[in-house]
Amino acid sequence: MRRDWLRPTLLIIASVIAGTVAWNGDLLLLPIALGFPVLWSLARTRSAATLVSIGYFLAASRGLPQGVATFYASDLWPGLLLWLSASASFVSLHALLWTKDTGSLPYRYVQAAVLMTVPPLGITGWAHPVTAAGVLFPGWGWWGLAATTAGVAGLVSRLRTAVAIALAGFWLGSAAFWTDPTPPQAWQGVNLELGASLGRDTSIQRHRDLIARVKDRAAEDLRYIALPESTLGFWTPRIERLWTRSLEGRDITILAGAAVVNARGYDNVLIALSAQGGQILYRERMPVPGSMWQPWRALLEESGGARAHFFANPILTLGATRVAPLICYEQLIVWPILQSMLSDPDLIVAVGNGWWTKGTSIVAIQRASTAAWAKLFAKPVVFSFNT
């Protein structure tokens, strides 16, 4: 009897540790997430595999309850409910695809990994172990992604020990010569510390303060400056005129977040601003489910919430530069960045408004995840966050 509960208990504890350590915001620790498929494959029953999946996913997304409580200025219960419900797709899929047939496990796990990459399951595909590809195989691009996928399949097979040793070698070699991705010389990302007021304080004085900050950052060799999600608040002709007039005589373009309201809700967008005017260049493909994207409203014939544009506009163009844009939640899931990489952009621009994540590692995880993808595809990256 003791053996019946000891093995699954140890596997669950190990999965919690893997989720906690891998997703703490330290980029070089992401490969620890590859411990999850190993632990999942070592389970001897479907219930044990389910509990291993629960332990890993809940540990990896542990900052969600506190973040939601801060966002809604409420107690932890709404956050806990969202935390548990968000894990449903990940846990259910891994429970369903687990099998006692060890020969089939590699195919089953790869199937789960693919399904957790793309919608609909990919909508909550956080903490995906394949994100570690950028640490294991920096610069390998699609070959690195394929090698990681093959490695994961090996980790759930009888060859797991040999595969783990090989992957550990790549990990150590990469860490020994690691350099963080940097922005191009003509680009700069501006980080703000304006808390919940960003995007909500719509006063002209706030915009003038932001314009002054941008001008202070402008240098002769800068052509583009990125500002966080929601910086411009609601996008209106009045705001456009204010910013474009302030940029007269300057050969500089601002890429900033805003909200565009329509009859059905709103779009979370990135807008390019210069002395020539403003232009919407990107509409967010995947807003935060629940708090922003609320698809049930359409079923109830209600308006409101952010629209999801899923596979639209994977890149935006500024002059001759092709940019892979990622707004906030898109940095935590897999398909937006992979879709953008199919177009071979020149750089990645990652923006967010993370004031509600204070006291959690969510923003650090967003940055680490984006940096890992940037390293995999050897792309420079520009970050701009508000906290």
Rank of each mutant, 00 (worst) to 15 (best):
L76W: 13
A127T: 09
S89L: 13
I17M: 09
E301Q: 15
L80G: 15
S87G: 14
S104A: 14
S303L: 08
Q294W: 04
A368M: 05
P106D: 01
V382I: 07
G35W: 06
R322A: 02
V269G: 01
G63R: 05
T387N: 14
G304R: 11
L81Q: 12
A162G: 13
R264W: 12
R158N: 13
S340V: 00
L222D: 02
P106L: 00
N353Q: 15
P138R: 04
S74A: 15
A256Y: 01
L80I: 12
L376Y: 00
D180T: 11
V351I: 13
L222P: 10
V363D: 09
A168E: 10
A127G: 02
T231H: 07
G139N: 05
A196E: 10
A256S: 15
A153I: 07
P181A: 07
G319D: 01
W296E: 11
W171C: 05
E302C: 08
L11P: 07
G139L: 08
K375I: 02
V334S: 01
A312E: 04
D346H: 08
L34C: 14
L84M: 14
Y56D: 06
R3M: 10
T253R: 04
P345K: 01
P380H: 01
S85A: 14
Q339M: 05
R158I: 09
V114I: 12
I271A: 04
L247N: 07
Y282I: 06
P345S: 08
E229W: 04
L299D: 15
V334F: 00
F71H: 09
M286P: 02
F234P: 14
K379N: 00
R2S: 14
A275F: 01
T70K: 09
I12C: 14
W126I: 04
A150H: 00
F71M: 11
F170G: 10
S104C: 09
T387M: 12
M1V: 12
D26V: 13
Q66W: 08
A226V: 02
V269T: 03
I348W: 04
A175P: 09
P120A: 12
W235Y: 03
I333V: 02
E229F: 11
P289H: 04
F36G: 06
S61P: 04
L167Y: 09
Y329W: 09
P287W: 00
G199M: 05
L64V: 11
W143A: 12
